[in-house]
Write a protein that binds this DNA or RNA. Structure first.
Lengths: 123, 123
DNA sequence: GTAGAACTACTAATTTATTAGTAGGTAATT
DNA sequence: AATTACCTACTAATAAATTAGTAGTTCTAC
């Protein structure tokens, strides 16, 4: 999958959240200052060409939806994080996380549950 | 702290690793195809202007070192990743990385112990 | 002392990314 | 049927990022 630019990424985040979107929906979600309609349309067209968005004609306007799943994109993006920030050491990373967030008892229980049940289930 | 571009980030990773570096050291660490000396020098100069690198004259050449600490940069990055990919939930993010790791039972126990004992010990 | 290597500062070209203009179509509204 | 709003496709302008050229300096080695 092709790398996305900042703007492309921003638009994809919106589409992933909305599932399907018209240009106007994307603009609505973008923070001020809102870009010009055609600006968004241009980037969306690039995303279609890159194969990360697909479009369907609804009436006489395009409706867009993601053509790659969020999880795949996330996995690609996070692939090098551990290496980049923790010298590839899992335990260093976990120590960081554990220290960083003051988790409540309930959150800790939930997390432990998640870790145990998700074991070896990486999609 | 200002956002870094890809190339800038790549160079900063090297400087953080080496602690101090001359342009030639950075080039040496960069993968093939190595960019032109002046290309690196230009980006380094941008990094100085942004305030993330500082330079010191050693003889008649510049030696560069980081002016912001790696930890701060890492924290910023992990913060935005958390928001972007895990709905701002630290435990979801932890669970994600834990899942990736295919931990043994013993390792899971150790991890759980660590989570519990590090609780509320934020530096 | 001249040739070469590596640096400097400065500038410029190229590529990539972002923004938005123009012109024309469709549909609803008055 | 003219006005308005919003869409289309296509093109172009601008901005940001990356790359590298030129010219001059210093140092080292022949």
């Amino acid at each position: 999958m092709q790398k996305l630019t900042k703007r492309e990424d921003q638009i994809m985040q919106i589409v992933w959240r909305l599932k399907t979107a018209f240009i106007r929906d994307i603009i609505e979600q973008l923070p001020e200052p809102k870009p010009h309609y055609n600006t968004v349309a241009t980037i969306v067209k690039i995303l279609v060409k890159k194969g990360v968005l697909q479009s369907e004609m609804i009436g006489n306007t395009h409706q867009y939806s993601s053509a790659v799943d969020f999880e795949a994109y996330r996995d690609e993006n996070l692939g090098s994080i551990k290496k980049k920030f923790f010298g590839n050491s899992f335990s260093k990373m976990m120590a960081y996380f554990a220290k960083e967030e003051n988790l409540s008892e309930a959150e800790i229980e939930e997390l432990i549950h998640m870790i145990k049940s998700n074991k070896n289930k990486k999609s």
